[in-house]
């Protein structure tokens, strides 16, 4: 039985910044440490990355899962094939097949980003009564992660100017799928302010 839900949020930042922050993977396990306990990469195939990720549900319940994240440039991320790790450990993913989809698009009227999060949970009939509980947990974790990202984005906007993606584009900065990011957004470096954190510290 499939339960689907969607969360749509307007984010006060440019699309290039929102996607840059998403691809700036070095922050995942540090900024989001309240929900993510560990992270490693099992496999990389083109724009598909298989992650092994430790999560903290509801602040206390720790689980480890593997999943594939696939990137469709410039702003579409799909997560699927979620499995328990180790496989034999009874867990949510043995019963519920989850697919998540995140898209970042330009707001049609304003200089802002529309983030669309779609989730589909395929579950057996005996878990159907709990679908709203599962939705609540996923929404809460997603919202917390988004809020932490936005706090980071807004602080960077304050110091370096709105839309400044120069540090994401810098040759020495690692991003996931960086060639795709540079191909789509390098032209936006022109309008950004040149300040970097290192310059502000000087």
């Amino acid at each position: 039985m499939k339960h689907r839900f969607r969360v749509v949020e307007e984010q006060d930042c440019t699309v290039a910044v929102a996607i840059g922050a998403y691809l700036d993977c070095e922050h995942y396990v540090h900024l989001h440490r309240s929900i993510m306990t560990k992270l490693s990469i099992d496999k990389v195939e083109g724009r598909k990355v298989t992650w092994r990720q430790g999560l903290r549900w509801l602040g206390f319940l720790k689980i480890t899962q593997t999943f594939v994240m696939e990137y469709f440039p410039p702003g579409h991320f799909k997560s699927y094939d979620m499995k328990a790790y180790p496989r034999w450990l009874p867990q949510f993913h043995h019963f519920v097949k989850t697919v998540m989809d995140v898209r970042y698009t330009k707001h049609p009227q304003r200089d802002a980003t529309v983030m669309t999060f779609d989730c589909e949970m395929d579950m057996p009939f005996f878990l159907w009564p709990f679908r709203n509980v599962f939705q609540g947990i996923v929404e809460k974790m997603h919202h917390l992660k988004d809020q932490e990202d936005l706090d980071m984005i807004h602080r960077r906007d304050k110091f370096f100017g709105r839309g400044n993606i120069n540090s994401y584009l810098a040759e020495g900065q690692f991003l996931l799928f960086k060639d795709d990011y540079v191909a789509h957004f390098a032209h936006e470096a022109q309008r950004a302010q040149p300040a970097t954190a290192a310059e502000l510290n000087a």
Partner: peptide
């Protein structure tokens, strides 16, 4: 993060670790 992403750091032409600033 080098321990997590080390396996990916040779995949992209636009990333050159030799150009990483000496953050201080």
């Amino acid at each position: 993060n080098d321990e997590i992403y080390g396996c990916m750091k040779t995949l992209y032409k636009s990333f050159n670790p030799a150009k990483t600033p000496k953050y201080r």
